[in-house]
């Protein structure tokens, strides 16, 4: 009972944090010059993109763990992280496209960031199509783990090199090429809280996914015992 209470108290804290982020987005943070109301998109579009990268990282980590330990549990975790990654990737893509329509005039124009996120979508798509093409569990785990790691080492090229080669229209307040922060303190507070909140939400979802996987395995074992 006690642990359950602790469980709920951190969720309550997260709820307060995210509510503050939403309030801060609309009433506290000032608007950036030239972006107008669309500054506010930054406080949830960028964290969604960030979580995509975190999920991708976690997927590669679990893939690596699978190759080391050869425990199918890690393969299920890698799959779960990738599923979460693709959800956040789609969210970031959609919000980015809507935002682009309003401020650049077109939903899609192959801006480096759009290219990068699209490539992440392609990688996730390839990963899941590889998984669905293989029937045997161990082979599936092994090959998709290798592919995930292979994709993982090529991603830095997209995220860091390609945006620097092409000129970007993207407002780039967090990590720009000059390494300067263009946000003021108020904006930064809301932005970083949002980033933190989204990261916690991701790990919460990941925890739920893990619970789900463990429960399914348990159920599978029970069914096997009966038969």
């Amino acid at each position: 009972m006690n642990s359950k209470l602790i469980n709920y108290s951190w969720q309550f804290g997260l709820f307060i944090l995210l509510s503050l982020v939403i309030i801060g987005t609309y009433f506290y943070a000032p608007l950036a010059k030239g972006l107008g109301e669309y500054t506010r998109v930054m406080y949830f579009h960028v964290p969604a993109a960030w979580v995509t990268v975190v999920a991708f990282f976690m997927g590669a980590f679990y893939s690596f763990m699978y190759l080391r330990k050869r425990d199918l549990l890690f393969d299920f975790y890698a799959e779960a992280a990738s599923q979460l990654g693709i959800i956040f990737c789609i969210l970031a893509t959609i919000t980015g496209a809507l935002w682009a329509k309003e401020s650049w005039g077109a939903y899609w124009n192959w801006d480096p960031r759009q290219t990068s996120i699209f490539i992440l979508l392609l990688i996730y798509g390839a990963y899941f199509s590889l998984r669905s093409a293989i029937e045997q569990n161990e082979t599936k785990a092994r090959l998709s783990a290798v592919y995930s790691l292979l994709a993982f080492i090529t991603v830095p090229f997209f995220i860091f090199i390609i945006p620097r080669i092409y000129e970007s229209l993207h407002p780039d307040p967090l990590v720009n090429t000059e390494g300067k922060l263009k946000m003021n303190a108020k904006m930064l507070t809301v932005f970083l809280s949002s980033l933190g909140g989204f990261t916690i939400v991701f790990f919460w979802l990941m925890h739920l996914k893990k619970t789900f996987i463990q429960l399914s395995i348990k159920l599978q074992k029970l069914t096997d015992q009966e038969n």
Binding site: I119, I123, A126, S129, A151, T154
Partner: peptide, 9 residues
């Protein structure tokens, strides 16, 4: 499908 994202850079 698998090779394209890897070779794109």
């Amino acid at each position: 499908v698998l090779a394209f994202p890897i070779l794109l850079p």
